[in-house]
Amino acid sequence: MKIEAALKSRSFFRILSVLLALILWQILATRINMDMMLASPIQVLERLFTIWREPDFFSTLFFSWSRIMSGFLLAFLGGFLMGTLAGALRPVELLLWPYVTVAKTVPIASFIILCLLWLNYSQMTVFIAFLIAFPVIYANVLQGIRSTDPKLNEVASFYRIPWYRKYLFITLPSVKPYLISACGVAIGMAWKAGVAAEVIGIIDGSIGEKLYEGKIYFLNADLLSWTLILILLSVLNERLFSLFLKGVFRGVQKL
């Protein structure tokens, strides 16, 4: 009975798919048989055990984390504020439309190269993370506001509920699922774009610089170890921020 339940569970299949991917990776690494082209999972695991003992490990993590998450938080605040304003006032949406469209459609590499000319290197990561996350948050907040039940809005105007109570108790619950899922996507994108900016700009003391060094010195195990650390950081930040947002929404419900 227990085995049957385990077979049906999602986590079982997740673990199984990760194991299969690791086996595939190991087979590929054995076939290629060149550490500098593709390190094996075991080599990467060994490197992970030593990498965190290096003197600049935590400062590198903090350097990239603080800049990427600052960019994301600015995008969160900006996207939330502008999305709310655009939801309430159509002219704001029309006014923002060209900027949001440019941010959504122009390849991030173009922005990175422009930033290399315009900004200092430490500002660049913040700006790129902001630029990639802002349209996601903005569009989802706007969508959430637009999907508010018009019948509840009618109740609010019939009972003359003050605008701030209407916003907190009718509009925000409708924005909630959009915002939580948007933040999950935006954090992942901010990490990807932020690190890409660090690699292209070869920013001193960043994770991007470590990835770049991994490439030029053929330290494939280093490159893959830092990539795994990046994935972990991105997922951890995504989960923590989602918990934080859910807590905030729970608090609002109790007001």
Partner: peptide
């Protein structure tokens, strides 16, 4: 007003 639908949060 009690609407035909309950219209509750």
């Amino acid at each position: 007003f009690v609407f035909q639908e309950d219209r509750l949060c």
